[in-house]
Design a protein around this nucleic acid. Structure first.
Lengths: 339, 339
DNA sequence: TTGTAGGCGTTATCAC
DNA sequence: GTGATAACGCCTACAA
């Protein structure tokens, strides 16, 4: 009939001489279909180049074929890596990726996200740290029937709802490396309160304790994952009671802040102070000296998250749960200065 | 009736004792409506907390309430800034942001994007550089009736379809600054072929020519906007026929590459070589020495792009077309060494 | 200025 | 296994 426009399910049904519903069954791979009918319909679909209309499906199914990444302003590289991972996970499917930033410190965050979910009705959402640690958001998704996966560093939900890496172990290894090289006074720049930083600190403490090294107050400084806070924390460690010979920072940005802090005090890196970061942002290999760091499997985690959302029950609930961080040696660590 | 679920247009119509269509008119701010009816209906809408269902509208209107950012792998900070700008532009509306990466070098790029547009039917799309310079994509959008805005550096489309900044002028200013400080041999690291780099080079040439300075082959090197290509280009300039005393790089990543290249040759920055970047990525202020650079109004451009798409005819077609880049002085430029 | 009928393209229900 | 028929929630055309 209509010469214009894309073919619809009606066209397929008419040409194949079956009902719309039968075509629908073919599209959705319904098991109760005769092989004969299926092949016949599939041929027509291929012939006329029919593609199901996602908007119509969205209306009927009450959910869009979209995965949303919900985040609270993490750093750019992290966000882009997550996006890349999700996109890899949905490549070749009909799914698309949406990005929804929120204000993690807002008291209305749950209502904000509820509004978003009710409006766009994404098929599923991926929560990025640090808001991924908010249990209320998980409950919200449950109550709305929206699938979700949280990117976290601890087992704070059922396996099918999380992807995580072994931060603790990675930090443990990094600090052990510092100790092996000869460091004893090792400073630690922590992230803001939440689970992920706690895991990192646990790795630090484990390595120190195992080596019989004391952990003093003046060896710990707090940051906010930003460059500026890294400078501040670095200065406070350097100017503290007893200057550490090495510093582990909970992310690269703060590590670079610490590098700058050291320069301000006339300390040469790495000869006067060794520094280790965490994340392996591209940044870390572009500065001088290049930063020894821990690579976080962000892309893989995000890809696993997308796969879990799309796959639903059919996918191994433990996918992406034990992803390994790896220690990367570069130029910012050497033996401590002779004392 | 139905106790469960969200209120629909039918509920509003029933309670307000008007027809669905009248409610629809209120939602869409139709001008032909009596003030009385409008207020009455709006009261009911507020009372029962009715929110129009985007999926249903999408089906009826044949377009989703989504703006898509289509890009070919620019750097992370740039991409995130664009996303932030678009999100600012759609804040408070029912629109959402989708991200669609494509392979700019693929011969099937037009078909790839056509598939995406036909599938997701975004309300409009924003093309990021460098693929924003591909005219075929603009034609594709026209033929599909999809609104689009291109982020570019030259007037290669009607004003309503572009947002741009004055790259040429900004580079001109930066190079003039180098000349004013005393530099005469000024190297230039170019981006890959396309319009945006050409504008930047034009600014460079204008400044040099005006000052009566010669431009030699060995003063120009080509990069690919990546850190690695910046290192290569930096080395080629440093090892070339006559070493420049200053280098302008067409983006920050390459500028930082050039810094590293200088270090490899034992040249101290900025005393031995001044360097200017372009973009003002956060990176540029975090390295040592901090990078003198040009700030590109990326967020503003992206916000303007979103506003133009949503606003349609009602918005000034010249919005976001003349955005100013600004020269930012930091620590990587000093007078050239005495010869 | 407002209402009625019908369509957008798909899926769900429930007979056959 | 398969097919009418009715949702899904909104919008357009046309009539009143």
């Amino acid at each position: 009939m209509k010469a214009s426009g894309k073919p619809t399910i009606n066209d397929v049904a008419r040409i194949a001489k079956v009902s719309k519903k039968t075509v629908s069954r073919v599209i959705n791979k319904s098991p109760l279909l005769s092989e004969k009918t299926r092949i016949q319909v599939e041929k027509v679909i291929a012939d006329i180049g029919y593609v199901p209309n996602p908007q119509a499906r969205a209306l009927a199914l009450r959910r869009n074929f979209i995965i949303a990444a919900i985040h609270d302003n993490p750093n750019a590289q992290f966000l882009v890596n997550v996006q890349q991972g999700i996109l890899e996970g949905i490549a070749g499917t009909e799914f698309g990726l949406m990005v929804e930033p929120v204000d993690g410190s807002s008291p209305s965050i749950v209502e904000d996200i509820r509004g978003f979910l009710e409006r766009q009705r994404p098929y599923g959402v991926v929560f990025l740290p640090p808001i991924s640690e908010n249990d209320e958001l998980a409950e919200l998704c449950d109550s709305l029937g929206t699938r979700y996966v949280r990117m976290v560093s601890g087992e704070l939900d059922d396996p099918q709802h999380i992807v995580m890496s072994n931060d603790r172990e990675a930090v443990y290894e990094a600090v052990r490396h510092l100790i092996a090289v000869g460091h004893e006074k090792i400073g630690f720049i922590e992230g803001p309160e939440s689970l992920s930083p706690a895991e990192r600190r646990a790795g630090y403490e484990q390595a120190m304790t195992e080596a019989g090294l004391p952990i003093h107050d003046w060896m710990i400084a707090k940051g906010r994952y930003t460059f500026e806070s890294g400078v501040e924390a670095g200065l406070s460690l350097i100017d503290g009671k007893d200057r550490p010979t090495a510093i582990f920072a909970s992310n690269d940005e703060m590590a670079i802040g610490a590098v700058i802090a050291a320069r301000r005090r006339g300390i040469e890196i790495p000869r006067g102070l060794s520094i280790v970061g965490f994340d392996d942002t591209p940044l870390s290999s572009h500065i001088w000296p290049s930063l020894t760091t821990v690579r976080w499997p962000i892309v893989e985690m995000a890809k696993a998250a997308a796969t879990k959302i799309i796959g639903g029950e059919d996918v191994d609930p433990n996918l992406g749960v034990g992803l390994a961080s790896t220690f990367i040696e570069r130029g910012s660590v050497v033996a401590p200065p002779r004392s």
